[in-house]
C-alpha cells in the first residue's frame, strides 16, 4: 500500500527530526501549513505539482511499455528550449497562434529527443537507461552553450545566463485573479496537466495503440507473435514519453519563468521517476503522488523557515518513501518465491 509506505517514511523522518534536535510535531505541522495552510500555499504546491505530473506521465508511459525512461529531465529541458526559442522568435504573433505553436514545438522537440533512445534500443539493442542518462548530460551542456554566449543568449543579460523573454502570446495566463489569491502564480498549465492525465488514461486504456503498448510491456514476445512489433512501439512510446516531458518544459517556460535560464527546473525529471513509482503508473496515482511530492518540496521550505528543521530532511523523507516502496516489492517477490498464497498478502 502506497499510503502505508508514505506513513512509514514520515515516521522514519520524525525519528530523524528528533535526532537532529527539533520537535517533529512542530516540524510536520509547519510542513503541512507550508503545503496547504493557505490558498496561496495551495496554489504554490500546485505550481510544483504540474511539471511533476507531466514528467511522471512521461516515465509511466514508458514503464507501461517495459522501458525505463530516466531521460524525462533531458526531454523536459529540450521542450523548454524549444518553447523558449519559439516563444521568443515570433513575439508579434497573437496568442491564439503563438501558444499552440510553442506547445507543439516543445512536444515535438521533447518527443524527438526521447525517440532517439527508443530508436537506439530498437535498432541496436542499446539499453535505454544508459542512453537516456547520457542524453540528460548532453542537454545540460548544450544548454550551457545555447544560453552562455550562444545563439539563444539574451542580449545584455546579466546574472544567470538566460534566453530572451517569450512574446506575450506565448504566456500561459494566471488562472486565479489577484483579488482572490494575492500573488498567486497558478497558471493555465494546471489545466494542461489535467488534460494530459486524461489523455494518458485514454491513450493507454481506450485505444488500440495503448493496448499494444501495454501488451509489449507485459509480454513482448506474445505481442510480437501476434503481429505487434515491439521495436516500432519502443520508438513510438519514447516519442510519446518525450512529448509529455517536453510539455512539462513548455509549461515551466510559458506559465512560470517566461524564458529559459541555465539550471532551469533541475530535478523534476528525476523526482518524476519516484512519482511514477509511487503512483503505480496509473493516471490518478501519478496525480496524487505529484501533489504529495510537491507538498514535500513546498512545505519543506516553510518547515526550515518556521521550525528550524533542515529542508534536506524532507528529501530524506522522500527517499525513504521510495525505499519503503522498493522494500514492499522485494518482500512481495520473496513471499511469492516461498509459495505463500497471494491471498495471505492481500
Amino acid at each position: 500500500m502506497p499510503i502505508v509506505s508514505v506513513l512509514a517514511a514520515l515516521l522514519a523522518g520524525a525519528v530523524l527530526i528528533l535526532i537532529s534536535g527539533s520537535n517533529p510535531i512542530r516540524g510536520y505541522a509547519a510542513l503541512l501549513r507550508g503545503a496547504f495552510g493557505s490558498p496561496y500555499n495551495i496554489t504554490e504546491t500546485l505550481v510544483i505539482a504540474v511539471p511533476l505530473t507531466l514528467a511522471g506521465i512521461s516515465v509511466a508511459v514508458a514503464f507501461r511499455t517495459g522501458l525505463f525512461n530516466i531521460g524525462a529531465q533531458g526531454q523536459l529541458l529540450v521542450g523548454a528550449l524549444a518553447a523558449g526559442w519559439t516563444g521568443a522568435q515570433f513575439p508579434e504573433l497573437p496568442g491564439i497562434l503563438l501558444l499552440p505553436l510553442t506547445l507543439v514545438s516543445a512536444v515535438l522537440a521533447g518527443g524527438a529527443w526521447g525517440a532517439i533512445a527508443g530508436w537506439l534500443k530498437a535498432a541496436r539493442g542499446v539499453n535505454e537507461v544508459i542512453t537516456t542518462i547520457m542524453q540528460n548530460y548532453t542537454v545540460v551542456f548544450v544548454m550551457h552553450w545555447l544560453l552562455q554566449n550562444g545563439p539563444m543568449t539574451a542580449p545584455n543579460a546579466a546574472g544567470t545566463p538566460a534566453s530572451s523573454p517569450i512574446g506575450a502570446g506565448a504566456i500561459l495566463p494566471i488562472i486565479i485573479p489577484n483579488e482572490i489569491v494575492p500573488l498567486s502564480r497558478l497558471h493555465a498549465g494546471v489545466v494542461l496537466a489535467i488534460a494530459a492525465v486524461v489523455v494518458f488514461w485514454f491513450l493507454m486504456w481506450r485505444t488500440s495503440l495503448g493496448y499494444e503498448l501495454r501488451a509489449v510491456g507485459l509480454g513482448a514476445r506474445a505481442a510480437a507473435q501476434a503481429g505487434i512489433d515491439p521495436r516500432r512501439r519502443m520508438v513510438l512510446v519514447m516519442f510519446i514519453a518525450g512529448g509529455f516531458a517536453g510539455l512539462a518544459g513548455m509549461i515551466q517556460v510559458s506559465g512560470l519563468f517566461h524564458r529559459v535560464f541555465d539550471g532551469f527546473s533541475a530535478g523534476f525529471g528525476f523526482d518524476a521517476i519516484a512519482v511514477a513509482l509511487l503512483g503505480k503508473n496509473s493516471p490518478v496515482g501519478i496525480t496524487l503522488a505529484a501533489v504529495l511530492f510537491a507538498a514535500f518540496a513546498r512545505g519543506g521550505t516553510i518547515m526550515q523557515a518556521d521550525a528550524g528543521v533542515s529542508s534536506h530532511l524532507v528529501e530524506v523523507v522522500e527517499a525513504t518513501v521510495l525505499l519503503v516502496i522498493a522494500a514492499e516489492a522485494i518482500v512481495r517477490a520473496l513471499a511469492v518465491r516461498r509459495g505463500t498464497p497471494a491471498e495471505a498478502l492481500a
Binding site: T207, S208, L218, A222, Q225, A226
Partner: peptide
C-alpha cells in the same frame, strides 16, 4: 511467455493481434 499476456484479462487476450480491427476497435479506439 509467447502465447498470452499473463497480466491481461481473458477478454483482452482474446483480441491480441486483433486489437486494431473491427469489431474490437474503430478509428483506433477500443
Amino acid at each position: 511467455v509467447e502465447g498470452l499476456v499473463l497480466p491481461f484479462t481473458v477478454a483482452d487476450n482474446f483480441i491480441l493481434g486483433k486489437q486494431d480491427r473491427e469489431p474490437y476497435a474503430r478509428r483506433g479506439v477500443l
